[in-house]
Design a protein around this nucleic acid. Structure first.
Lengths: 186, 186
DNA sequence: TCATGCTATGAAACTAGTTGCATATCAACT
DNA sequence: AGTTGATATGCAACTAGTTTCATAGCATGA
């Protein structure tokens, strides 16, 4: 039970704003995706289980000009399950940093492989540059006046600042990586 | 094929130093674990598959005072597979940041829940403080003189610096989180 | 002698997550 | 009329990862 967290990420997202599986999938590509990734298939499957367990309730919405959708809201048992989970210890993070593996692996590749890695790091760096810009734009848009925020917004803001800090750290480190790769002896 | 990376993390680790499944598991708790986590069961299973595929070869080692072990080394097909993988594009990271979910979830919990979260963040912070100390001690031990390093060591060092940067960023952010949690209105 | 603990490997069952495919509505453009 | 693209949901098969349990050698200390 402890580690099963997609349910809980969905509960938080639905408490912030009820929505359909499709909308959740888009949020997981945007804001929630900063700290929890999930595909739409996984989201639909988990939503179905959560509905069976009465953690959420669904409401059929007829839409003009679009297919119907099912809007989910958090029910009392779901909210209780979230509270229980919130008070459990945070599990140690499981890190999967593929680029770090490739950097150490570069010791066992030739000059062509290292050149390829440098290009790849540059592309990767550009992606993170884009992500940082997106976060900063989102911060301007959603949290323009720090004094005017309610508690929920303050908590969302501090998580966003974590994303911004992370991206800045990554960019600085990637510069260090590029410098190291350019200055290898062979 | 692209995302299957535990094999490749194992290949890098075995190229840096041949070893048994048990030794690999310990490395994955230590140095490699900085950027790729894995349990011993997963490592044993993957090693078996890699042996079947002739990516690695095993050698039975009789040990005095300890159970026998199987020392694995990377074979030519494994090295070729690593080279192929190294030149593939880096997959986007899949982020799973449970603490961030709990922080946003705190908006839907009461004062007691927030107090529990503050304690949890403090404990989490202490863990990261320990991790940073361990990294810094490892840096002193393994890379005392930056001018004397060969390419493999330089690459290992830049990855370790990434870990150090990450831990420092996390600690600063956790201070921000604690400050935010202490200053919520209700 | 017995308990504890580290070394060392592994099976079996389960849970989580990914990939590929399928279906359907409707808008906008060609 | 046909294509493209966004919205919207879902199944089936597969792959990856976790958890629980089991086994065994040998050292150390109570």
């Amino acid at each position: 039970m402890a580690g099963v967290a997609l349910e809980h990420a969905i509960l938080v997202s639905l408490l912030e704003q009820p929505g359909s599986g499709y909308e959740l999938a888009r949020r997981f590509d945007r804001s929630i995706g900063r700290f929890w990734t999930a595909t739409h298939q996984q989201i639909y499957r988990v939503l179905k289980r959560m509905e069976t367990d009465a953690w959420v309730t669904a409401e059929e919405i007829d839409q003009d000009g679009r297919p119907d959708k099912r809007r989910y809201s958090v029910a009392t048992p779901g909210r209780a399950a979230l509270t229980t989970w919130l008070r459990e210890p945070v599990q140690p993070e499981t890190v999967r940093h593929e680029l770090a593996v490739k950097i150490r692996g570069a010791a066992f590749d030739d000059a062509a492989g290292r050149a390829a890695l440098i290009s790849e790091v540059e592309r990767y760096r550009a992606d993170h540059e884009t992500t940082l810009s997106r976060y900063l734009a989102g911060e301007q848009r959603d949290f323009p006046d720090a004094a005017e925020l309610d508690d929920g917004q303050r908590l969302q803001h501090v998580v966003l600042r974590g994303g911004i800090d992370y991206e800045r750290m990554v960019l600085a480190w990637l510069d260090d990586v590029l410098d190291t790769l350019h200055n290898l002896s062979r």
